[in-house]
Design a protein around this nucleic acid. Sequence first.
DNA 1: ATTGCATGCATTGCATGCAATGCATGCAAC
DNA 2: GTTGCATGCATTGCATGCAATGCATGCAAT
Lengths: 213, 213
Amino acid sequence: MQTDVALSRVRELILDGTYPPGARLTEMEVAATLEMSRTPVREALRALAADGLVRPSGRGVVVASLERGDLEEAYQVRAALEALTAELAATRQREGRIAPADLAALRDVATETATATAEGRFAEAVRLNRRFHRLIAELAANSMALHALERIWDQIQVSTLRSLAPPSRPAHVSGQHEELVAAIVLGQADEAARVARAHVLDTRTTTSQEERA
Amino acid sequence: MQTDVALSRVRELILDGTYPPGARLTEMEVAATLEMSRTPVREALRALAADGLVRPSGRGVVVASLERGDLEEAYQVRAALEALTAELAATRQREGRIAPADLAALRDVATETATATAEGRFAEAVRLNRRFHRLIAELAANSMALHALERIWDQIQVSTLRSLAPPSRPAHVSGQHEELVAAIVLGQADEAARVARAHVLDTRTTTSQEERA
DNA sequence: ATTGCATGCATTGCATGCAATGCATGCAAC
DNA sequence: GTTGCATGCATTGCATGCAATGCATGCAAT
């Protein structure tokens, strides 16, 4: 239905930076752009507000961005949830509930991410990095955690779009990804949780300190 | 505005069991009940769907309830988040960023909860228990975590309404609350996280196994 | 008796009109 | 020059009409 069209289109436009943080969106504008009436647009904007991607601001809504403090909060929650999903994924692996092909896919994405980063294809590296983390969350088989993480990833992505910079220590990040994969493959739940949490908090520090030239 | 009225009224009706899990709600019914038009009701129902309290079901929506598996997932996420908030609260206490009155309030609620449980006032005990956990989340000063937890608590509440039974080991639960308070007061972050997680997972087991007579 | 189909109806999704609201802009007064 | 106010306008919130949709119900046919 139209509402879903509006929702996904506008979400994409926000996530790819076409509507940057602070940009003001009005029902009428968006309705005109998408060539539909205000009603479905209105519902889509409300849904985006519930997801934290926009916030009401006087008349209309503006694309939300997490300020320093909020970003820190987001990373803490993300770290806790990714520790959980890593732990659950490792546990499921230990119980033999994870298909070998899924583990292979995880390894592949980790490798591709490292390659893309090393070759300077940062936009793609960002996509692959997210896919890597999402794959783990999917292996955890906890839809609630996955859903919560998708929301947080979206918010963080919007807020750090402008700083699309190379990680300060690419080898370090890739190494952490490998450690994480190894812990999951070996079914070491506690270790996976520990590494996942440390990794997220580690990227937090670098991301929030970097600024694009 | 009307949408917010509809949202809070319907949410309350769901949370107090007036609309039990499985109950079907249509825009027109609710609009008639609340004496407003369909538009704000429609938006409220969509918001509730985003919160996971209702889900679309053919025409209209039905009050959602978590099945065994989903409930398990919810408790895992809740445990991870409450471990985080307990840890953050303890850390803030260690840094002297928590007012003594807030700690006193936390102690009081823990005591009241234990008393209400011991005296068989279970409905009130449930309310106090939630307040206890929310107070900790507020002390953590992480609005994202608090918000996520509110959503999960709501969903769990709806799904366990019918089993409004005394905890199987009231003294045990009260003891865990005291341990948790102690760890926070002493600023022992790791211990607080450990106790919080164990406590949530402990109540999970009992709650999902109990059935009201 | 059971299955398939047609018809009616409940209900939603979307569009649009109208009234309310609050913000911006400009003018006047101090 | 600055501050306060009034007025106009952009924009939203809500109501309602209309068309589309899909489900239920009943009837007929095998």
